[in-house]
Amino acid sequence: MTDRTITLTFTPDFRTVDLVRAALQGICRELFEPDGGAFTFELALAATEAMNNVAEHSGASVAELEVAADEEGVVLRLASPGERFDSSAAAAMPDDASDPDGAEGGYGLALIQELVDRLEFVYENGRNVLTLYKRFNNEGITKEG
């Protein structure tokens, strides 16, 4: 998936995450989903959860989101410097929200797993790198040439 690649470098805080999400939604609208449908919503949500995690836990002062799209789908690669983040402990869905005493938070990584086709995490060169793959499987999506 190297047809078209865009890299966004940003300060990982919640307000800036909003701006990066808006940029990602704009890229999706421009490239393949002009009306911003379910694919764009789910991709933006997966990216938001990953970026919020970096903003909340990494302590990094800078992060990088690479967006790569081709005719099959989109790959997002989020990299941030810092200590290794063990994602496996946080990937399970918490006690579900239907429980009166159920968790109000902790759904982020579990939601990412539900919304993308594949997720990979590596720690390399002092950076946590999370890669999300989401395929076009919706007939409504046609990518411009």
Binding site: A44, L45, N52, A97, G102, A103, E104, G105, Y107
Partner: peptide
């Protein structure tokens, strides 16, 4: 748009 923090706010409001 809503994310897991927004969902958490709805759950907290309901509680």
């Amino acid at each position: 748009f809503i994310d897991s923090s927004g969902l958490g706010a709805c759950i907290a409001a309901n509680k």
